[in-house]
């Protein structure tokens, strides 16, 4: 088989769209299951979510999967836009009168537009959460901290530290350093005094509603929630056509199963984005 067939032929490009698209559907399920923890309120929810975020960043298998996901999004977007560009060229002169609604769904005809909006969403979403988690300043959620010279264990988050510990709501006897991203040490002599997770939970809460310390509302939260919800609606339309379409592309069509696949695709396209959108709505209105 020649390279030009696998990368350049129209049908092979479509296999790539279908494989990456279906893989991204799996990714959506995984991502959604993780996000569901945001419904889990209070300090316990905060701890559970932050530990989960830590796990997601450090588990080897998940690291591998995340790279496959980045590549899939990139490939799906580039390939999709390339196909859309070729398709535009295939009809240089438009009809004066075109009743396309008589023969096809608008989602099926607007996959590239819907996809481009999703791409913008993914980019901003990654700057807001993924980027902060990986490269940004993120508050630490600390617990089990015990200070030498102080008594006993300090439970949960009576501490609120930033990375550089400029905010220190409790008196700290000694300078504290973070190692391995989750262990707190004092220096000279180096003693482990507790644990702290990057507090992604508070970042999310602050983004869509109440800020980390619980009370004041982010002025622009309504906008974030609105744009998030619109993006999920766009994703929903992309999947209403995309899910079943991928099976057709891969030649998986059969009088007995195609109706079932279409129904599953419809259900998936409604339930998954709606549940994603419910989370910021819940945070905002609760």
């Amino acid at each position: 088989m020649s390279k030009s067939v696998i990368l350049k032929s129209s049908i092979a490009k479509k296999y790539w769209m279908a494989f990456t698209g279906l893989f991204l559907c799996l990714f959506l399920v995984g991502h959604l299951l993780g996000n569901l923890q945001l419904f889990y309120a209070g300090e316990e929810g905060r701890r559970a979510f932050n530990e989960y975020a830590y796990f997601m960043q450090h588990n080897l298998l998940i690291k591998v999967m995340s790279y496959v996901t980045y590549l899939s999004i990139l490939f799906h977007a580039i390939d999709g836009l390339l196909l859309a560009f070729q398709n535009k060229k295939a009809r240089p002169i438009q009809y004066a009168m075109n009743k396309a609604s008589a023969n096809s769904s608008s989602a099926s005809r607007q996959m590239a537009l819907l996809g481009s909006i999703i791409l913008i969403f993914i980019a901003t979403h990654m700057v807001n959460f993924w980027g902060k988690m990986h490269f940004g300043e993120i508050p630490l959620h600390t617990y089990n901290v015990s200070m030498p010279g102080q008594m006993g264990q300090v439970q949960e988050s009576s501490f609120y530290y930033t990375h550089d510990f400029s905010v220190q709501p409790v008196p700290v006897v000694k300078e504290i350093v973070v190692k391995n991203e989750l262990e707190l040490y004092i220096k000279n002599p180096e003693i482990k005094v507790g644990e702290g997770y990057k507090d992604l939970h508070s970042v999310v809460m602050g983004f869509f509603g109440k800020s980390a310390n619980g009370n004041d509302v982010n002025e622009l939260a309504w906008l974030a929630v609105l744009l998030y919800t619109i993006s999920m609606a766009v994703l929903s339309f992309h999947l209403m056509h995309g899910f079943a379409s991928a099976f057709q592309t891969l030649g998986l069509r059969h009088p007995r199963y195609t109706a079932i696949i279409k129904n599953i695709g419809m259900g998936f396209a409604i339930i998954v984005p709606a549940t994603f959108a419910a989370i910021p709505l819940y945070i905002f209105f609760k």
Binding site: S10, I11, K13, K14, L83, Q86, N87, K89, A90, R91, A100, N103, S104, S105, S108, R109, M111, H241, S245, Q248, T249
Partner: peptide
Amino acid sequence: EGFGNCTNTGA
């Protein structure tokens, strides 16, 4: 020949 790529619109 310059035909476009199928998006399974079914039209």
